[in-house]
Protein backbone atom coordinates (compact mmCIF):
# COMPACT_ATOMS: atom_id res chain seq x y z
CA UNK A 1 0.00 0.00 0.00
CA UNK A 2 1.93 3.00 -1.27
CA UNK A 3 -0.25 5.88 -0.20
CA UNK A 4 0.58 9.54 0.27
CA UNK A 5 0.37 11.07 3.76
CA UNK A 6 -1.54 14.33 4.18
CA UNK A 7 -2.33 16.59 7.13
CA UNK A 8 -5.75 18.13 7.67
CA UNK A 9 -6.97 19.86 10.84
CA UNK A 10 -4.11 18.25 12.76
CA UNK A 11 -5.04 14.73 11.62
CA UNK A 12 -2.81 12.42 9.58
CA UNK A 13 -4.62 10.95 6.58
CA UNK A 14 -3.49 8.66 3.78
CA UNK A 15 -4.51 9.02 0.13
CA UNK A 16 -4.56 5.43 -1.11
CA UNK A 17 -3.66 4.56 -4.74
CA UNK A 18 -7.20 3.18 -5.25
CA UNK A 19 -8.76 6.58 -4.55
CA UNK A 20 -9.91 5.74 -1.00
CA UNK A 21 -8.94 7.89 2.01
CA UNK A 22 -7.65 6.18 5.15
CA UNK A 23 -7.64 7.76 8.61
CA UNK A 24 -5.52 5.26 10.53
CA UNK A 25 -5.93 7.10 13.85
CA UNK A 26 -9.70 6.80 13.75
CA UNK A 27 -9.69 3.55 11.72
CA UNK A 28 -12.00 5.27 9.22
CA UNK A 29 -12.05 4.44 5.52
CA UNK A 30 -13.71 6.93 3.20
CA UNK A 31 -14.71 6.52 -0.47
CA UNK A 32 -16.68 8.89 -2.65
CA UNK A 33 -18.96 8.76 -5.68
CA UNK A 34 -19.42 4.99 -6.03
CA UNK A 35 -22.31 5.57 -8.48
CA UNK A 36 -23.57 2.02 -7.96
CA UNK A 37 -26.19 1.06 -10.54
CA UNK A 38 -24.99 3.50 -13.17
CA UNK A 39 -25.30 1.06 -16.07
CA UNK A 40 -28.84 0.22 -14.94
CA UNK A 41 -29.82 3.89 -14.90
CA UNK A 42 -28.32 4.46 -18.35
CA UNK A 43 -30.31 1.52 -19.72
CA UNK A 44 -33.47 2.89 -18.13
CA UNK A 45 -32.91 6.46 -19.27
CA UNK A 46 -31.12 6.19 -22.60
CA UNK A 47 -31.76 2.63 -23.74
CA UNK A 48 -28.02 1.93 -23.92
CA UNK A 49 -26.94 -1.40 -22.54
CA UNK A 50 -23.42 -0.92 -21.21
CA UNK A 51 -21.61 -3.90 -19.68
CA UNK A 52 -23.61 -4.40 -16.46
CA UNK A 53 -20.55 -5.12 -14.34
CA UNK A 54 -19.83 -1.65 -12.96
CA UNK A 55 -21.41 -2.20 -9.52
CA UNK A 56 -19.65 -5.55 -9.24
CA UNK A 57 -16.30 -3.95 -10.20
CA UNK A 58 -16.73 -1.07 -7.76
CA UNK A 59 -17.69 -3.32 -4.87
CA UNK A 60 -14.80 -5.70 -5.63
CA UNK A 61 -12.36 -2.80 -5.37
CA UNK A 62 -14.00 -1.54 -2.20
CA UNK A 63 -13.82 -5.03 -0.68
CA UNK A 64 -10.07 -5.08 -1.35
CA UNK A 65 -9.58 -1.87 0.62
CA UNK A 66 -11.86 -2.99 3.45
CA UNK A 67 -9.96 -6.26 3.73
CA UNK A 68 -6.62 -4.50 3.71
CA UNK A 69 -7.46 -1.68 6.18
CA UNK A 70 -10.08 -3.46 8.35
CA UNK A 71 -11.75 -0.14 9.27
CA UNK A 72 -14.07 0.43 12.26
CA UNK A 73 -15.96 3.07 10.26
CA UNK A 74 -16.66 3.26 6.53
CA UNK A 75 -17.88 6.59 5.11
CA UNK A 76 -19.41 6.68 1.63
CA UNK A 77 -19.24 10.32 0.73
CA UNK A 78 -22.37 10.71 -1.39
CA UNK A 79 -23.48 9.72 -4.87
CA UNK A 80 -23.05 6.16 -3.68
CA UNK A 81 -25.96 5.27 -5.95
CA UNK A 82 -26.52 6.65 -9.38
CA UNK A 83 -30.11 7.35 -8.32
CA UNK A 84 -32.47 6.05 -5.68
CA UNK A 85 -34.10 3.64 -8.12
CA UNK A 86 -30.76 2.04 -8.88
CA UNK A 87 -30.23 1.48 -5.15
CA UNK A 88 -33.44 -0.56 -5.19
CA UNK A 89 -32.41 -2.35 -8.36
CA UNK A 90 -29.03 -3.49 -7.02
CA UNK A 91 -28.85 -7.21 -7.72
CA UNK A 92 -28.86 -9.81 -4.95
CA UNK A 93 -25.20 -10.59 -5.46
CA UNK A 94 -24.14 -6.98 -4.94
CA UNK A 95 -26.49 -6.60 -1.96
CA UNK A 96 -24.89 -9.64 -0.35
CA UNK A 97 -21.42 -8.19 -0.95
CA UNK A 98 -22.45 -4.92 0.68
CA UNK A 99 -23.89 -6.78 3.65
CA UNK A 100 -20.63 -8.70 4.12
CA UNK A 101 -18.64 -5.45 3.99
CA UNK A 102 -20.92 -3.79 6.55
CA UNK A 103 -20.76 -6.65 9.06
CA UNK A 104 -19.11 -5.61 12.31
CA UNK A 105 -18.42 -1.99 11.40
CA UNK A 106 -20.11 1.36 11.39
CA UNK A 107 -21.30 2.31 7.92
CA UNK A 108 -22.24 5.88 7.04
CA UNK A 109 -24.01 6.88 3.83
CA UNK A 110 -23.62 10.63 3.21
CA UNK A 111 -26.33 12.12 0.98
CA UNK A 112 -25.27 13.17 -2.49
CA UNK A 113 -27.02 15.01 -5.26
CA UNK A 114 -27.75 11.71 -7.00
CA UNK A 115 -29.01 9.92 -3.89
CA UNK A 116 -30.68 12.54 -1.67
CA UNK A 117 -32.58 10.19 0.60
CA UNK A 118 -32.33 7.04 2.69
CA UNK A 119 -31.79 3.75 0.93
CA UNK A 120 -33.16 0.40 1.89
CA UNK A 121 -29.76 -0.98 2.81
CA UNK A 122 -28.01 -1.19 6.15
CA UNK A 123 -26.01 1.71 7.56
CA UNK A 124 -26.66 5.19 8.86
CA UNK A 125 -27.86 7.93 6.56
CA UNK A 126 -26.57 11.48 7.14
CA UNK A 127 -26.42 14.86 5.38
CA UNK A 128 -22.88 15.30 6.76
CA UNK A 129 -20.79 13.75 9.50
CA UNK A 130 -18.42 15.38 11.96
CA UNK A 131 -15.53 13.48 13.42
CA UNK A 132 -13.71 15.83 15.76
CA UNK A 133 -12.22 18.59 13.66
CA UNK A 134 -13.10 16.81 10.42
CA UNK A 135 -16.33 17.24 8.46
CA UNK A 136 -17.35 14.68 5.85
CA UNK A 137 -19.84 16.01 3.27
CA UNK A 138 -20.62 15.49 -0.41
CA UNK A 139 -20.02 18.93 -1.94
CA UNK A 140 -17.28 21.23 -0.68
CA UNK A 141 -18.43 24.55 0.78
CA UNK A 142 -16.37 27.68 0.30
CA UNK A 143 -14.87 28.98 3.52
CA UNK A 144 -15.04 25.66 5.39
CA UNK A 145 -11.98 24.00 6.81
CA UNK A 146 -11.16 20.47 7.92
CA UNK A 147 -13.54 19.39 5.21
CA UNK A 148 -13.48 16.09 3.30
CA UNK A 149 -15.71 15.96 0.22
CA UNK A 150 -16.23 14.38 -3.19
CA UNK A 151 -18.68 15.25 -5.98
CA UNK A 152 -16.31 16.73 -8.57
CA UNK A 153 -14.51 13.54 -9.73
CA UNK A 154 -11.23 15.48 -10.12
CA UNK A 155 -8.60 14.13 -12.50
CA UNK A 156 -5.17 15.35 -13.47
CA UNK A 157 -2.63 14.67 -16.23
CA UNK A 158 1.12 15.06 -15.74
CA UNK A 159 2.50 17.09 -18.62
CA UNK A 160 4.22 14.87 -21.15
CA UNK A 161 3.69 11.51 -19.41
CA UNK A 162 0.46 9.68 -19.99
CA UNK A 163 -3.20 10.55 -19.80
CA UNK A 164 -5.28 11.97 -16.98
CA UNK A 165 -5.87 9.93 -13.83
CA UNK A 166 -8.45 10.41 -11.10
CA UNK A 167 -6.85 12.37 -8.23
CA UNK A 168 -7.29 13.72 -4.72
CA UNK A 169 -6.99 17.47 -4.24
CA UNK A 170 -5.44 18.67 -0.99
CA UNK A 171 -4.69 22.03 0.57
CA UNK A 172 -4.55 23.40 4.12
CA UNK A 173 -8.36 23.50 4.43
CA UNK A 174 -9.77 20.55 2.57
CA UNK A 175 -9.41 17.29 0.74
CA UNK A 176 -11.52 16.47 -2.32
CA UNK A 177 -11.71 12.76 -3.18
CA UNK A 178 -11.67 11.22 -6.65
CA UNK A 179 -14.65 9.13 -7.75
CA UNK A 180 -14.23 5.49 -6.63
CA UNK A 181 -16.91 4.03 -8.93
CA UNK A 182 -16.37 2.43 -12.32
CA UNK A 183 -17.88 4.25 -15.34
CA UNK A 184 -17.34 7.65 -13.75
CA UNK A 185 -15.90 10.39 -15.93
CA UNK A 186 -13.95 13.25 -14.46
CA UNK A 187 -13.40 16.98 -14.25
CA UNK A 188 -9.95 18.42 -14.82
CA UNK A 189 -8.35 19.58 -11.58
CA UNK A 190 -7.56 22.76 -13.48
CA UNK A 191 -11.26 23.56 -14.06
CA UNK A 192 -12.43 26.91 -12.66
CA UNK A 193 -14.81 25.35 -10.11
CA UNK A 194 -11.93 23.44 -8.53
CA UNK A 195 -9.43 26.28 -8.79
CA UNK A 196 -11.87 28.48 -6.89
CA UNK A 197 -12.05 25.95 -4.05
CA UNK A 198 -8.36 25.13 -3.70
CA UNK A 199 -5.97 27.56 -2.02
CA UNK A 200 -2.30 28.31 -2.70
CA UNK A 201 0.09 25.39 -2.35
CA UNK A 202 -2.60 22.89 -3.27
CA UNK A 203 -1.50 19.46 -4.48
CA UNK A 204 -3.08 16.78 -6.59
CA UNK A 205 -2.48 13.17 -5.59
CA UNK A 206 -2.81 10.91 -8.61
CA UNK A 207 -4.30 7.45 -8.22
CA UNK A 208 -2.91 4.44 -10.06
CA UNK A 209 -0.38 1.75 -9.25
CA UNK A 210 1.12 4.06 -6.62
CA UNK A 211 -0.27 7.36 -5.40
CA UNK A 212 1.73 10.30 -6.68
CA UNK A 213 1.74 13.84 -5.31
CA UNK A 214 2.17 16.78 -7.68
CA UNK A 215 1.66 20.49 -7.24
CA UNK A 216 -1.65 21.70 -8.63
CA UNK A 217 -0.36 24.02 -11.32
Amino acid sequence: MTGVMMSLAGRRLTALPSGALWDAGAATLCVSDLHLGKSDRIARRAGLMLPPYDSRATLDRLAEEVTRCDPRVVVCLGDSFDDLASADALDADCQASLLRLQAGRRWIWIEGNHDPGPVDLGGMHLRDWRDGALTYRHIAQAGESGEISGHYHPKFALPGVGGARPCFLHDARRIILPAFGAYTGGLSARAVELRALMGPGACAILTGRVALRVPLI
Partner: peptide, 11 residues
Protein backbone atom coordinates in the same frame (compact mmCIF):
# COMPACT_ATOMS: atom_id res chain seq x y z
CA UNK B 1 9.70 5.75 -12.50
CA UNK B 2 9.53 8.48 -15.11
CA UNK B 3 6.29 9.81 -13.66
CA UNK B 4 7.72 9.77 -10.12
CA UNK B 5 10.75 11.72 -11.35
CA UNK B 6 8.61 14.32 -13.08
CA UNK B 7 6.38 14.64 -10.01
CA UNK B 8 9.37 15.09 -7.67
CA UNK B 9 10.86 17.67 -9.97
CA UNK B 10 7.61 19.63 -10.08
CA UNK B 11 7.28 19.49 -6.29
Amino acid sequence: RLMADVAAELM
